[in-house]
């Protein structure tokens, strides 16, 4: 169990920022590792009393990409928004169960959601840079978090880590809204990195991008996973198969009488197995394109 967030901050400061290409451990070795980034137990979400996600239990490992796939409305976004308590912002949403982040339950009564979000980065479906300069977009997080070091250096390192530095180094003072969609999304990734999280949540990060920009994001994810655990929600099964080490398949259950719908976790495991030898018939139907 990894201790408090302060010590992991220190580790990160010592290692410096992501360009240092630490050798990624082979996937297999993680099986012996017990240091899950997230341990999720019996997670359920209700919106105004209606259940939206039911009893999800899942472990997220460090330095791996975990893909969350499933048909529309199965609760993928709801699930990922539980991991940094973004669901708190939705009026009437309640969450039950446990989400242990390095062993600490982020839903414990004494945990401040603001502190949680400072440790867990998030990238959204549509690129959402602030209407500020490129520099100020990256600097926003460090500034509100009381960053004391060399901000210029942090901005540069974050942009380099997001493979954007070369494209924007001459227009750091220009508005971020002038960048292309793909550049904006990489800027949002750089912005998330700048607060030095160890997990990045990505909610369909490429669904608003063209194929070339999508490839760049996917390549970037392969670089980033050397440092970060990445959880990506995606509609695109090919994308999940291309980028992820592990895949979780969510599916919608329907109560025939009340016609209430909610998401469940059908199965999860190594991406290769999920796509070639799924255990569950519903997974097989989905990944073979029979519905969804």
């Amino acid at each position: 169990m990894n201790p408090s967030s302060t010590s992991s901050t220190r580790e990160r400061e010592e290692t410096g920022l992501p360009m240092v290409p630490e050798a990624a451990e082979p996937v297999e070795e993680h099986k012996t590792s017990t240091s899950a980034v997230f341990t999720i137990r019996d997670l359920s979400v209700y919106y105004g009393g209606n259940i939206a996600l039911k009893d999800v239990s899942l472990d997220i490992r460090p330095r791996e990409i975990t893909a969350i796939i499933g048909p529309s409305g199965c609760g993928k976004s709801t699930f990922i928004r539980c991991l940094n308590r973004m669901n708190d912002l939705i009026p009437g949403a309640t969450v039950t169960g446990e989400v242990l982040y390095h062993g600490q339950n982020i839903y414990a009564p004494d945990v401040d959601p603001v502190a949680v979000r400072r440790r867990i980065g998030m990238v959204f479906q549509r690129p959402n840079p602030f209407p500020k300069s490129v520099y100020d977009n990256i600097a926003f997080g460090p500034r509100i978090n009381g960053f004391k070091g060399n901000l210029d250096e942090l901005v540069e390192n974050s942009l380099r880590a997001a493979a954007l530095w070369e494209e924007v180094k001459d227009k750091l003072k220009k508005s971020a809204l002038n960048l292309s969609g793909g550049q904006q999304q990489r800027l949002c990734i750089a912005r998330a990195i700048a607060v030095e999280p160890d997990v990045i949540l990505m909610d369909e990060p490429a669904s608003a991008l063209d194929p070339i920009a999508t490839v760049r994001i996917e390549d970037l994810m392969q670089e980033l996973k050397k440092q970060y655990a990445i959880i990506i929600v995606t509609h695109n099964m090919q994308q999940a198969a291309r980028v992820s080490e592990r895949t979780a398949f969510l599916y919608t259950e329907v109560d025939e009488e009340t016609s209430n719908r909610w998401g469940i976790l059908v199965e999860h495991g190594e991406t290769g197995l999920i796509f070639t030898r799924p255990k569950d018939k519903r997974t097989e139907d989905y990944v073979s394109g029979r519905f969804g």
Binding site: R117, P129, F130
Partner: peptide, 27 residues
Amino acid sequence: VPDDDRYAAYALGATRWEMIRGAVLPR
């Protein structure tokens, strides 16, 4: 001001006031 802007600030660990100052007022 789009909610996307608000979420962006919140996801970086902004408090409500920091979100308003950093995301809502600039927009």
